[in-house]
Computed example of a mutant assay.
Amino acid sequence: MSATVASRLLRWFDRHGRKDLPWQRAFDDGRRDAYRVWLSEVMLQQTQVATVVGYFERFVAALPTLRDLAAADEDTVLALWSGLGYYRRARFLHRAAQLCVERHGGELPRDFAALSALPGIGRSTAGAILAQAHGLRFPILDGNVKRVLARYHGIHGHPGESSVEKQLWQHAGAHTPTTRVADYTQAIMDLGATVCARSRPRCDACPLAADCIALRDDLTAQLPGRKPAKSIPTRATVMLILRDRHGRVLLERRGPQGVWSGLWSLPEATDPDGAWRLAQQHAQVDDARALAPFTHVFSHYRLAIEPLLFDRATPQRGIADNPQLRWCSAGELGALGLPAPVRSLLLQVSDSASAERQAASITVVPSGFEP
Rank of each mutant, 00 (worst) to 15 (best):
R357Q: 04
L266M: 12
F294R: 07
T363D: 00
D29V: 03
K146A: 15
L309S: 04
A90C: 09
P339S: 04
L346F: 07
Q280M: 12
L278E: 15
Q170P: 00
E306A: 13
R277I: 09
Q167T: 08
A61P: 09
A150N: 01
A117W: 10
V60L: 05
L118T: 00
P64G: 11
Q167I: 07
C196H: 05
P293S: 14
G258I: 01
C100M: 09
Q45A: 12
S352T: 15
D33H: 08
S265A: 15
T51K: 14
I213D: 03
F27D: 11
R67Q: 15
G122D: 12
A359T: 04
V49G: 10
T51C: 04
P323S: 10
S40Q: 08
V37L: 13
Y152V: 06
L346Q: 01
P64A: 13
E356C: 09
I121M: 05
D287L: 13
P307V: 10
A131R: 13
A34L: 07
W81V: 08
Y301G: 03
S7M: 11
Q132V: 15
A229G: 08
F59D: 02
H171A: 12
T314V: 14
A359D: 02
F294T: 05
S231A: 15
D142V: 02
G17Y: 10
S367T: 12
A113W: 09
L84P: 01
R245F: 00
F27V: 06
S350H: 14
R202N: 00
S231T: 14
W23V: 05
T179E: 15
T51V: 11
R110H: 06
D286N: 10
L308W: 14
H175A: 08
A187E: 08
L99K: 01
R67K: 11
W276S: 05
F369V: 07
H296E: 13
L63N: 03
P207I: 00
A128V: 03
Q45T: 12
A353R: 14
A133V: 08
A279R: 05
R202D: 06
R147G: 10
Y87V: 00
R357T: 09
A3L: 14
L191Y: 04
T65R: 14
Q170R: 14
R36P: 03
P22Q: 12
Q46G: 07
S40N: 10
A113P: 00
R245T: 09
F92E: 07
G157D: 01
F369L: 07
M43I: 01
V297M: 09
A172E: 06
I188Q: 00
H94N: 02
Q46R: 10
P207Q: 05
S82F: 12
R277C: 06
T220R: 12
H134I: 01
V238W: 10
A229K: 15
D204M: 05
R25Y: 03
T194R: 14
A283H: 02
S116A: 15
L291P: 01
L44H: 04
F92I: 06
L84C: 07
A335F: 05
L308M: 14
T4E: 15
S329E: 03
A62V: 05
C196R: 00
S350A: 14
A96D: 02
L303Y: 06
R88H: 00
L130S: 02
Y152H: 15
D244W: 06
P341M: 08
D311H: 15
G143N: 08
A26M: 13
C196S: 02
F59W: 03
N144L: 09
A70P: 02
D75A: 12
R58P: 00
L78F: 05
S82Y: 13
R248C: 02
